[in-house]
Design a binder for these strands. Structure first.
Length: 292
DNA sequence: GGTAGACCTGGACGC
DNA sequence: GCGTCCAGGTCTACC
């Protein structure tokens, strides 16, 4: 079955897909040639389905197998969230018009950050990006999915992202030895256990009206989430008050303003201070000189 | 509030 | 094939 979901304008499908490296992490997939984005999802009914999503005139078009009425409603809600179809970035665009390095922000409809259907998945993936190289992040994520994810019946080589319950039912030792997440094992298992038991309601944070500073405090309470990871998750949640400062950010700022000389996190903060509540977006969508 | 050192993995490199 | 070094954020202890 096919269905269309409209997006608040302006909207640019490729800008969302290319907003960060998430698209390279299973169970996402993207075919550059056809422009089809795929995601294997486990619905709350227990069925594992694939969404094949492409750009439409007003937003996105999704294709999947026949779903029940409640499954369809769930799929629509998840896809709306993943692509932030309802998000409004007009205030950021207004501020960005004055800055040549952000000139393309509005024309390319930047601001939306590709996200997972659940915040649990995004928190786990963010933990997997910390203190490691991108290749290792991809490997750990794939190991996690292959070990704990439910298989997609039409192609059992592909699996949905594991539920908190599936990970919680295992233990930190298995995460360390089979998923090869190293010291992150206890943080991931604790996160899964607290989420599965209801002690931690991550999904409520998606709709939270808390000020960003308070929301950040909530994220920092999670074991394994520090300043970088919290800022990354805030951007995913549409909050732009903090910059995810990692070694890459230091490199970008170093080459942009300091001729490649070493810089500190404070230097990065200073460069974007004037952007206030938009500093995260300004950093994220800056037209950087330096490229990998 | 700031800082040093430990935590792990896997890739790169030298032998 | 083996050993060593290094990159990458968070956490804890300490000042």
């Amino acid at each position: 079955m096919k269905f269309n979901l409209p997006a608040r304008q302006p909207f640019n499908f490729r800008s969302v897909i290319q907003s960060h490296g998430w698209v390279q992490l299973a169970p996402y997939g993207y075919d550059e040639a056809t422009g089809v984005f795929a995601y294997v999802d486990r619905l709350s009914s227990g069925r594992v389905v694939e969404y094949r999503i492409s750009e439409s005139t007003e937003g996105v078009q999704a294709q999947t197998e026949a779903l029940t009425k409640s499954e369809l409603a769930e799929a629509k809600e998840k896809i709306r969230w993943m692509f932030a179809l309802d998000a409004d970035f007009s205030a950021f665009y207004k501020a960005a018009r004055k800055e040549p390095k952000l000139r393309r922000a509005e024309t390319l409809a930047r601001g939306r950050v590709l996200r997972s259907p659940t915040l649990f998945e995004d928190v786990v993936k963010t933990i997997l990006t910390t203190n490691t190289l991108w290749g290792a992040t991809k490997r750990m994520n794939l190991n996690l999915i292959n070990l704990f994810g439910a298989p997609f019946p039409a192609d059992e080589t592909r699996r949905a992202f594991p539920t908190p319950q599936a990970i919680a039912a295992s233990n930190a030792e298995t995460l360390r030895e089979k998923v090869r997440v190293g010291y992150r094992a206890s943080a991931i298992h604790e996160l899964a256990a607290k989420t599965a038991s209801g002690q931690l309601d991550l999904e409520a944070l998606k709709r939270s009206s808390l000020p960003t500073l308070e929301l950040r405090k909530e994220l920092l309470k999670i074991n394994g989430i520090g300043p970088y990871a919290a800022a990354n998750l805030l951007l995913i949640l549409g909050r732009s008050d903090f910059i995810p400062i990692d070694s890459w950010a230091l490199k970008l700022v170093s080459h942009e303003w300091h001729d490649g000389e070493p810089v500190t996190a404070k230097d990065v903060e200073r460069r974007f201070e004037k952007w206030g509540e938009f500093k995260g977006f300004a950093y994220w969508f800056w037209d950087w000189k330096y490229e990998a």
